[in-house]
Design a binder for these strands. Structure first.
Length: 491
RNA sequence: GGUCGCGUGGCCGAGUGGCUAGGCAGCGGUCUGCAAAACCGUGUACGGCGGUUCGAAUCCGCCCGUGACCUCCA
């Protein structure tokens, strides 16, 4: 069987065998958030997708350096190198320093990432922390003749660049088409070419976030930070660069151009793009105002939500679709995922209690191979999950005595379950912790159910049913077993 | 207008030129005092019209619908 990992590369529009440039090391750069507002669920999807990719690469034994930046400067309202700085605007609104905005939303972002059980990146560089690297890079691009300065602002010369290198290959577009598609510049004749973009922008007197540069006071353009930081921490050419599909056409296209104009090498071997999260078929985005905030989702406090859903249910829901497909968000879909997730978790508990038999009637080796095959095929988590439900069936059947599993297979199954459910998919039980009061409740429920058990032994079914009905009403789910009972609280 | 993508059974969502995706819901059964859970069984699904082929939902053409990008967004 094919043990290679295949990765869909946006550059070639094909799945390619993944071969790191310097095995066993793997360098991966993911465009992180611009921290001027709360991350919404769409953003979270991208980071959860790459978390699973990161986790799988680690699971395969690669030494991964995972860099995910924080954009905390240089991101203007419009990308025509005009308009207000996002941080400054927000700072004015909230009457705070721009860096207070940055701090607030960086912490918020980290909280959300932790709630979703994502691993921290190896390095999380900020744009403001790498101003000098960006300036150095701009100087090199200028020296190589692919940029020009006008009144303290430095522009990248796209037409010049495109004569020497391919431009727009990520979106498979030709320069002429791009030029045609560009709208008329309104009153902006500073740039030589319509497609040119700013590397460095001269500050205005009222600009809050500005730095000195060879071209005077100013701030970096949005795209240059990723080029500079990727180069600094991963080298002139590294393995994987990822981000949302919305970044493909402009941000990543320009990143490639900058890096190549600077170093004369192709910066990235595999480009990976995650698809958008949609609500009623429309992309979830900040500007559309249809973005869910994670805490709204958890509490259910949102007009479109019937109730709340736990972070792990949401993570599982996302893993049930492929990262390159759009995923549509609905109560029904979420509820289906919740049931499925609980089934998966419960089977995990059952697995831990399972006793080995002398023989096996199940094929764990095949199951394991199926799981690897799914992930090796461009991180196909929905297929992986389908196979994990095969495991669930095996576990429950063995528990019911309908299948048999021997010691070797049992251990193998436990390892597969642990590896894929917890290590790779990054799921975990999200039970509410039991407080002291919870312990009392627990004891009381046990006590009552023991009374019920006695009633059952005496064939006093009207009493036993009454107890069950009452407890069920109060959210205690009861399961009778052969010689006792099990119960759990509904969340 | 240009570029690219998508359209799968009640819902979500994979995949493939002929071989069961999976989850949820529904229906039937086993188990149970009755339930619940679990397990077993169960669905003539692939937008429309043509074409290629022994065979297409999967390839090609046209059409319809829909979305993304082309302007900030993961």
């Amino acid at each position: 069987m094919d043990k290679n990992l295949y990765v869909y590369n946006t550059l070639s529009r094909k799945k390619e065998i993944f071969e790191p440039i310097n095995p066993p090391f793997v360098g991966i750069y993911v465009c992180g958030p611009t921290v001027y507002s709360d991350v919404h669920l769409g953003n979270s999807r991208t980071f959860i997708s790459f978390d699973i990719i990161y986790r799988y690469l680690l699971h395969l034994g690669y030494k991964v350096r995972y860099v995910r930046n924080i954009t905390d400067a240089g991101h203007l309202e419009g990308d025509r190198d005009e308009g207000e700085d996002k941080f400054a605007k927000k700072a004015k609104l909230e009457q705070l320093e721009p860096m207070e905005i940055v701090q607030k939303y960086t912490i918020g972002f980290h909280d959300v990432m932790a709630i979703f059980n994502t691993l921290s990146p190896s390095i999380e560089p900020t744009a403001t922390g790498h101003i000098s690297e960006q300036i150095e890079m701009i100087k090199e691009i200028l020296a190589n003749g692919y940029a020009y300065e006008i009144n303290g602002t430095v522009y990248f010369d796209v037409e010049k660049y495109s004569k020497d290198f391919p431009y727009g290959q990520l979106t498979n577009r030709k320069l002429e088409d791009l030029l045609e598609g560009t709208r008329e510049l309104d009153g902006q004749d500073e740039k030589k070419g319509r497609l040119d973009f700013a590397l460095w922008i001269q500050s205005k007197p009222e600009t809050l976030m500005k730095w000195p540069s060879p071209w005077g006071w100013g701030f970096p353009g949005w795209h240059i930070e990723c080029s500079a930081m990727g180069k600094k921490y991963l080298g002139e050419t590294f393995d994987i660069h990822g981000g949302g599909m919305d970044l493909q056409a402009t941000h990543h296209t320009n990143e490639i151009a900058q890096s190549q104009a600077c170093s004369n090498t192709v910066p990235v071997k595999y480009w990976m793009h995650t698809n958008m999260l949609t609500v009623n078929g429309v992309r979830m985005s900040k500007s559309a105002g249809n973005g869910f905030l994670p805490h709204e989702l958890f509490t259910g406090n949102h007009p479109l939500l019937e109730r709340g859903y736990s972070p792990m249910v949401v993570r599982f829901f996302m893993a049930q679709s492929h990262y390159r497909s759009t995923l549509d968000f609905s109560n029904e879909a979420l509820q289906a995922s919740e049931k499925g997730f609980q089934k998966l978790m419960k089977a995990g508990e059952t697995l831990n209690k399972l006793k080995a038999e002398n023989e096996s009637t199940v094929n764990i080796e095949e199951l394991k191979n199926n799981c690897y095959a799914a992930m090796n095929d461009d991180f196909n988590t929905p297929i992986l999950i389908a196979h994990l439900f095969d495991a669930v069936r095996i576990i429950n059947s063995a528990n019911d005595g309908k299948e048999k599993i021997n010691q070797t297979d049992l251990e193998k199954l436990k390892l597969v379950y642990k590896s894929f459910v917890f290590d790779v998919l990054g799921l975990k039980e999200d039970k509410t912790e039991k407080s002291g009061e919870g312990q009392l409740t627990s004891d009381l429920i046990d006590f009552i159910l023991n009374l019920r058990l006695e009633a059952k032994k005496n064939k006093d079914f009207s009493t036993s049913d009454k107890i069950r009905d009452e407890l069920t009403k109060k959210g205690v789910k009861i399961k009778d077993t052969k010689d006792g009972f099990e119960w759990e609280l509904e969340n």
